[in-house]
Design a protein around this nucleic acid. Sequence first.
DNA 1: GATGAATGAGTTTTCATTCAT
DNA 2: GATGAATGAAAACTCATTCAT
Lengths: 196, 196, 196, 196
Amino acid sequence: MPKVGMKEVRQQQVIEATMRCIVKKGLSQMSMKDIAVEAGVSTGIIYHYFKNKEDLLLQVLKESFRKSHERVMDTVEPLRQSREKLLKHLENINAVPKENPDFYIVLLNYLGQAPHNPEIHKIVTKFLSNLTSYANRYLSTDLTGGTFADVRLWHLPTILLALGMGLGIMWTLDRNSFSIEEMDVSLKDLISRYID
Amino acid sequence: MPKVGMKEVRQQQVIEATMRCIVKKGLSQMSMKDIAVEAGVSTGIIYHYFKNKEDLLLQVLKESFRKSHERVMDTVEPLRQSREKLLKHLENINAVPKENPDFYIVLLNYLGQAPHNPEIHKIVTKFLSNLTSYANRYLSTDLTGGTFADVRLWHLPTILLALGMGLGIMWTLDRNSFSIEEMDVSLKDLISRYID
Amino acid sequence: MPKVGMKEVRQQQVIEATMRCIVKKGLSQMSMKDIAVEAGVSTGIIYHYFKNKEDLLLQVLKESFRKSHERVMDTVEPLRQSREKLLKHLENINAVPKENPDFYIVLLNYLGQAPHNPEIHKIVTKFLSNLTSYANRYLSTDLTGGTFADVRLWHLPTILLALGMGLGIMWTLDRNSFSIEEMDVSLKDLISRYID
Amino acid sequence: MPKVGMKEVRQQQVIEATMRCIVKKGLSQMSMKDIAVEAGVSTGIIYHYFKNKEDLLLQVLKESFRKSHERVMDTVEPLRQSREKLLKHLENINAVPKENPDFYIVLLNYLGQAPHNPEIHKIVTKFLSNLTSYANRYLSTDLTGGTFADVRLWHLPTILLALGMGLGIMWTLDRNSFSIEEMDVSLKDLISRYID
DNA sequence: GATGAATGAGTTTTCATTCAT
DNA sequence: GATGAATGAAAACTCATTCAT
């Protein structure tokens, strides 16, 4: 077993175990012991790699958002046309809860903490504003030369994000609340009529 | 101080103190002691009126949803035309976080628990499906004779709820993420184009 | 409802409810609330008739022993010959757990407290020595003119009591540990051979 | 102070502290804090080694019975003749309360719980039936070829156990209730007459 | 680096007792 | 006399964190 360069490996091991614990038991029901057992390490070693529980939880949130952002980029970024991007973005919104249901469970747990924990709050709002900016950027750069007025585009990124988050939460809580495939069609219809 | 017939009063007193504590400290950071102090009673008396913390938290959630539902009804129900109702509904969606910001803080706290607590999960999904049904009812009964196809209406209630929840969460986390008044205009525009 | 002379009635009501609670839940698992509910009164009123829980428990023990002693006297006392008394006594020993199983449950609960509570200890040892004295009295007064030596009689009462208590406890804990009817025969055999 | 491999040591340390607490204060008067102080450890560590108070108390009972059984075996088992064993057994019965008075205090505390706690009940009845079986075995295997009828032997083990328990309880409660040495003589007389 | 034993403050919950009505 | 609301101290239990090995 290599003893050098283990830092990143161990940290990742613990972060991923923590995510699984959050999904299984919930952020506030999960103890450091739970995490240690899930990760297959001792409780002591966690404190070697993370300052304390608070610190670990922040790293987990960052990692979770990093992965999510990566997924968005991998899917949407390669596309050329912003119209294509928009439609892919809409598909993405719907796909996340189904393809990565754990993300929403983790997100919900942290959203509940955000109002009372400045650090978490900062990271969450940063993540949300990043997503908004991103949509804003490709809409404004590529579509401004188009036929529709700017003013309507102004709120579109926010609306898309809100819709995505709202639908994601609803579907995560109850998979029968709507069909993702059918909702996909409706959303494209809704947004197409808006921007055309 | 009267000592008899205080049941309803005390229960309400404790429930409201609990809501304030959730807003102040967060669901899982708040102790029974905190609640007792906030309510101005002893910890013992809380257990006289509620089976345990879990029970109290469920009553708080129910009461919170009851009040919220009541507010929706008071505002939207008196209106005659479903078109009016729909627009008022849209206004409402935007108004809630501003007029009753605590509701969203409380909601976020419980949403984080919902995936891990069957009772909370049941109440939350019931609340969401009630709201959806309600919008569904006035849309389907009054607008079916209209000019637009049913199929589009099918998802409208869910979309409205998701939008409302998503925007509410975003604005609660960051009041600068968008202007409620401007978003009001955009939403009406978005939905009008969809149903016309 | 008569308000005078209620004292004895209420006290008896509470004492008997307490006995039922001890049988149902156990001395140390039973709360004043349990007793109040079982007796159909408020917790407050118990403190009107008994100084505190300790006092109530002592009254219950006394009452339990009073009733038990009464039963012994009613059965054994009317008999003329001490030989008859002795045999009846033996029958009695065996009959108690079957005819009044609750007595042994209550007794076991108090025996566990006796080593740590001087008041209970005093009452229990008094009860045991009373039973011993009683057997001693009718054996020594009536049998001393008989054919067997005094020295053997000396311990007979204690042996009888120990046997009775031991068998009672065993049968109370496990009704299949022996057959009371068969044990009756064996005991008479054992004791007859001893004194003849 | 070593910090590793302390499991067995600590468990024994806590179990023995618990026994002392039961003797000092009584099973239901004794708190986990009391035990921790008596054992010279923190309350937390007890929960590291025992699931909860119930679990600890069961281990204490098992250990107590294990030790007691060991003592019986060490004394009686080496003997060849079952007549010898029987007489030694009788001596033993009388010796326990004097040589190991704590055993009876502990036993009395658990006997009071047995009717209301299935686990304790099971362990206690198992212990009693083990003792009965043991006496039964050496009586039936070695004495059946003797001159006295089987039928009388049938109940002898139970009678011996009941006598032992009854006398032990009486003497534990009141050391003046009889002289152990004199009772020894009487018992041997009683049983000898019975089996001859 | 790694372990898991150990701590002790903090949490939920119970309950004998009191007391205003 | 009678009620049951109210108290608060004490109980069982948890858990983040530390530290000897």
